[in-house]
């Protein structure tokens, strides 16, 4: 009984709404052409922005194996490579802010890397690392950016337990 009543009220409300619309003389319809044009302009501008920026900054993201398969990179061609720092290969110096290490895929090929700059705190032997830069003629990867992902940052490695 009560449910029926509120259902009725709901239906009456809907009817009232429809009435109001017709009284206004216009039923809602698709937007007018000027809005369509404005929409297309905005959308086009966004797409253009995205396309331009994308061309300017897209970068290949490779494993060490894929990097070696590509070989030496032309200057100015930035690559992003991820891998693991091989245990016992991190060498600091000779310059105070330089670091050299070997980076490898999981049980795979490896490449020497040289980087100058601020080393993130999470950079360590055996840790995951992402470098951006290019492969030089002597087979050394010159990194301009060094990002380190520490496996124990949130989730400790299984092997480290007990």
């Amino acid at each position: 009984m009560e449910g029926e009543q509120s259902g009725l009220r709901f239906r009456r409300q809907q009817a009232l709404e429809t009435l109001r619309k017709t009284a206004d003389g216009r039923r809602p319809r698709l937007a007018r052409p000027q809005f369509l044009i404005a929409f297309l302009v905005v959308f086009g501008a966004l797409a253009f922005l995205g396309y331009n920026a994308f061309n300017a900054s897209s970068m290949y993201y490779l494993s060490v194996g894929e990097l070696l398969a590509r070989g030496e990179t032309s200057s100015g061609d930035e690559l992003r490579v991820s891998g693991k720092v091989v245990e016992g290969t991190i060498q600091r110096g000779p310059e105070a802010n330089a670091v050299r290490f070997t980076m490898a895929d999981e049980n795979g090929p490896s490449v020497p890397v040289v980087y100058r700059g601020v080393v993130p705190d999470t950079f360590q032997e055996g840790g995951q690392v992402v470098v951006e830069g290019g492969l030089g003629p002597e087979g050394v990867f010159r990194a301009r950016t060094l990002l380190a992902k520490c496996p124990s940052k949130y989730e400790p490695e299984e092997s480290k337990q007990t």
């Binding site: 920026a53 994308f54 300017a56 900054s57």
Partner: peptide, 10 residues
Amino acid sequence: TTVGPPFFQE
């Protein structure tokens, strides 16, 4: 293929 910070900034 990745895009770097310049993409997001631009």
